[in-house]
Computed example of a mutant assay.
Amino acid sequence: MLKIDLKPNESVRIGDNIVVTLEEKSGQIARLSFDAPKSVPIKRVQPATPANVAASYGLGMN
């Protein structure tokens, strides 16, 4: 895993055709923009909580 610090308007290139740019940061919120071909799926991933892990296995947490 690569961890990198970016300042607003700095970018990271992934491969030849994907660019991720830090648009702005305020507190713990960061706004990113992704420039990628439409064939590349981009999905938001939720933090791993016990309920999310259980749901991924089809289990309910009561």
Rank of each mutant, 00 (worst) to 15 (best):
45 V>Y: 01
56 S>V: 06
41 P>S: 02
39 S>G: 15
30 A>P: 10
37 P>R: 11
40 V>N: 02
60 G>Q: 10
38 K>V: 15
45 V>W: 00
46 Q>T: 15
38 K>Y: 12
10 E>K: 04
27 G>H: 05
51 A>L: 01
20 V>Q: 05
1 M>I: 12
21 T>S: 01
54 A>F: 13
58 G>A: 01
3 K>R: 04
56 S>I: 08
59 L>Y: 09
34 F>H: 13
20 V>R: 06
58 G>H: 01
14 I>P: 03
28 Q>L: 14
39 S>K: 13
46 Q>D: 14
15 G>N: 03
9 N>Q: 14
39 S>M: 15
4 I>C: 03
27 G>W: 06
23 E>Y: 09
51 A>H: 08
32 L>C: 06
21 T>V: 10
29 I>S: 14
36 A>L: 06
44 R>F: 15
20 V>S: 10
16 D>W: 05
3 K>V: 10
5 D>N: 07
39 S>H: 14
36 A>K: 03
5 D>Y: 06
44 R>W: 10
28 Q>R: 05
36 A>R: 07
30 A>G: 14
34 F>W: 10
41 P>T: 08
28 Q>C: 09
61 M>D: 12
10 E>L: 07
13 R>W: 07
43 K>H: 14
10 E>S: 11
2 L>K: 03
59 L>Q: 05
10 E>H: 13
42 I>C: 05
30 A>S: 13
10 E>Y: 12
9 N>Y: 11
12 V>A: 07
24 E>C: 02
52 N>G: 11
37 P>E: 09
24 E>S: 15
47 P>Y: 04
20 V>L: 12
25 K>I: 15
19 V>A: 07
49 T>D: 07
40 V>K: 01
11 S>E: 12
51 A>M: 06
2 L>C: 00
45 V>F: 08
22 L>W: 03
5 D>R: 06
28 Q>K: 04
24 E>T: 15
9 N>E: 13
41 P>G: 07
55 A>V: 07
13 R>S: 14
10 E>V: 01
53 V>W: 04
23 E>W: 10
11 S>C: 06
47 P>F: 08
56 S>L: 03
34 F>P: 03
4 I>K: 05
53 V>K: 00
14 I>D: 00
25 K>C: 11
3 K>N: 09
55 A>G: 02
3 K>C: 11
43 K>E: 15
19 V>P: 03
2 L>V: 07
55 A>P: 11
61 M>V: 10
2 L>Q: 06
38 K>D: 11
9 N>H: 12
32 L>F: 11
11 S>D: 06
58 G>L: 00
50 P>D: 08
42 I>L: 13
25 K>W: 01
14 I>G: 02
41 P>Y: 11
60 G>I: 02
34 F>R: 01
2 L>H: 02
40 V>F: 07
10 E>N: 10
12 V>W: 05
58 G>I: 07
35 D>P: 04
52 N>W: 14
43 K>V: 15
38 K>P: 07
41 P>Q: 06
4 I>D: 09
52 N>Y: 11
31 R>Y: 12
10 E>R: 04
48 A>E: 13
7 K>V: 04
43 K>G: 10
53 V>G: 03
61 M>F: 08
4 I>M: 03
6 L>D: 13
57 Y>V: 02
14 I>V: 15
5 D>A: 09
10 E>C: 11
6 L>V: 05
23 E>Q: 08
46 Q>Y: 08
47 P>C: 09
33 S>V: 04
14 I>R: 00
16 D>H: 05
36 A>I: 00
8 P>I: 06
